[in-house]
């Protein structure tokens, strides 16, 4: 229980701090909005094209906007000199990792809700009938992205070209997760049966579990000076 309370304290601190500045959320939502606007103009939004492309557009917006939040996760702690304060607290590196990862996950979910709302308006797609399976896919995909991203955010926080490094590190490893998420989202938005996404869901779950385990085993070494 103590461990959970400490993890929650980190999440609370990140959310409170973000609500004051709105640095991360605002930039993520604005970037996502711009991506959707650009695709809206660039692509023919006829019904056939839209069905083929919308899942890809959604996840491009999610992933690129999410990356902005990831870069700030440990980068902000490093820039403000608070990382040592956090490391000096009586909590395991795994606890610090979980706190930061959950914070990033929550910010991404807020951005994704905003993005879905914009998609509904801009692309005239009603996501309400698919909300449950779509929510599950987005949950698993976002969890996977936040899981990997937080690991690499900590690794790249010390580097000078932090944002570039983060993209280079995160994207290649996220490929299976992104493909599974895009495919599963596409199936759901095309009105496919829930059974059709089982194999993609398994990949997402396996991906999340593998990288959570990896974070548990390695984060102590990663965060060390």
């Amino acid at each position: 229980m103590t461990f959970i309370q400490k993890v929650w304290a980190i999440v609370w601190k990140d959310i409170t701090s973000e609500l004051r500045t709105k640095e991360i959320l605002l930039s993520m939502c604005l970037f996502s909005f711009l991506v959707l606007i650009i695709f809206n103009f660039a692509l023919d939004t006829g019904l056939k094209n839209l069905r083929e492309n919308i899942s890809g557009i959604l996840w491009v917006a999610f992933i690129f906007s999410g990356l902005m939040g990831l870069g700030r996760s440990f980068g902000v702690e490093r820039d403000r000199g608070t990382l040592h304060g956090l490391l000096l607290c009586p909590i395991s590196p795994w606890g610090i990792y979980l706190g930061k990862m959950i914070g990033t996950f929550i910010f991404m979910v807020v951005m994704e809700i905003f993005t879905l709302s914009i998609v509904t308006v801009l692309y005239n797609i009603n996501v309400i009938p698919f909300l449950l399976p779509l929510g599950l896919i987005i949950f698993l995909g976002t969890l996977g992205f936040a899981t990997i991203g937080t690991i690499f955010s900590a690794m790249s926080a010390t580097t000078k070209a932090r944002d570039v490094m983060l993209s280079i590190l995160v994207f290649p490893i996220s490929v299976p997760m992104i493909i599974a998420s895009v495919k599963a989202t596409g199936i759901i938005l095309w009105g496919g049966a829930i059974q059709e996404i089982y194999s993609w869901l398994k990949i997402l779950i396996a991906f999340d579990l593998v990288f959570l385990l990896l974070a548990y085993l390695t984060f102590g070494f990663i965060i060390e000076e």
Partner: peptide, 25 residues
């Protein structure tokens, strides 16, 4: 205690101490 204060600028003094106090139970 170092020349670096380990404090969060966006939080109030109370919120900073509340965070660290919660970490130390």
């Amino acid at each position: 205690i170092s020349h670096n204060t380990f404090l969060y600028n966006n939080l109030s003094a109370y919120e900073n101490l509340k965070f660290y106090g919660r970490m130390y139970k």
